[in-house]
Design a protein around this nucleic acid. Sequence first.
DNA 1: TTCATACTTCGACCCTAACCGAAGCATCTC
DNA 2: GAGATGCTTCGGTTAGGGTCGAAGTATGAA
Lengths: 232, 232
Amino acid sequence: MKEGPDIAQIGSLIGDPGRANILTALMGGRALTATELAAAAGVTLQTASAHLSKLEAGGLLAQRKQGRHRYFTLADDGVGKLLEGIMGFAASRGHLRHRPGPKDPALRKARICYDHLAGDYGVRMLDSLVATGAISAMGEGLNLTPHGEAHLGSIGIDVSELRLNRRPLCRSCLDWSERRAHLAGSLGKALLSNFLDKGWARRTENSRSIFFTPEGDRRFLALFPLETTGQS
Amino acid sequence: MKEGPDIAQIGSLIGDPGRANILTALMGGRALTATELAAAAGVTLQTASAHLSKLEAGGLLAQRKQGRHRYFTLADDGVGKLLEGIMGFAASRGHLRHRPGPKDPALRKARICYDHLAGDYGVRMLDSLVATGAISAMGEGLNLTPHGEAHLGSIGIDVSELRLNRRPLCRSCLDWSERRAHLAGSLGKALLSNFLDKGWARRTENSRSIFFTPEGDRRFLALFPLETTGQS
DNA sequence: TTCATACTTCGACCCTAACCGAAGCATCTC
DNA sequence: GAGATGCTTCGGTTAGGGTCGAAGTATGAA
């Protein structure tokens, strides 16, 4: 019984609703201050402070002091991956905080998942990349083809630079709203940054949803066409 | 803040030490009775019964009534995968229940991870399969080659039958003791079953460790040679 | 220096939930 | 039937931790 890692410790860290709210808010990818996180979690500042200390001590959060502000982020990609996994599992068991109805359609359409695009558009993007042969899907693994690398280069993404990163280039991430895979990893991050830089889309305040401008929407759909070949 | 799946609920299910012990015990793969689980968790039968009810209501456990016994198992492969993920994460942050020293060498050498082989031998097996070209590792995905399929057929594993299963054939699973990948998925399960059936190895009572007979040990090492080519 | 903002620490409250003893069902054995 | 075994339910206790008010510390602005 006393074998192995202590899953109870990190389970209890995630198990408190206040802390879960904080972590979910930080899945948005941007660094948030203690005050913002307190509001997001629906608790007072003192309570949030205590939670943040515990999360940091547990290795889930990193903080950066900047003037009199304290910015918190998820400690690293591993934490994001862990939370994604738990969210996917929770969704598969129907543990939703809201009735699953057509709530928050903007969130289902396009949202940020730690640092990459998720939701309807995220799934479509990966489907399209696979259908056009830019990415080959083998089993659970995703790999960028030379064709795909050239294609992405043409829209301003330097893949060779991304390879320098220790982080995997392509990773599939299960979407809790679509129950299908979308693209994570450093390439997923780079693609979303690319869209934001070009002004195709922008983040919304206080939410994880991503808003596409009419022009950006058009360009995105043109860049990632969806053939009706029944590609899964 | 009220977006998405309820990670706090499943976090708190895992967050209690008693329940975590129960889940860890069930990672051993075999079905256990309420009494056995109570002993494993170090609590009385009443307490364990309450925990088991909660875990079942949360969709983590399945039970099968057999006579006056009640056998519990993890609900499905998804739960095993979730727990593996959390264990790997916890190990990466150093959240170990024991001082990490050379405790339980048998457990580090070979143990069962839900239904497949983990530990030193598990890592070696996957390394060898990759080195000999039986499995190709691309990114995070693993794929059985035709050569590998033939090779496994020769030792009595019918891969085509495994393909009928909805479950992925090859999946990589991060080892908390070795911090390296070993083989999971239906193929990982089949290989372990194969060793047990042949009498090369057997499970030990009340522990997740796997004991190899001297003969089985010799055969295993011969079947999965480790070339010193620095294959990672 | 003085005030305001951002956050932490302290102390106390309070409530959940883990826990176990005892009693109650259910199932098997004899 | 009587007794034993496996497990659940009930009731009451207790401890741990989440919570917030109030006070304390750090940084920046005026």
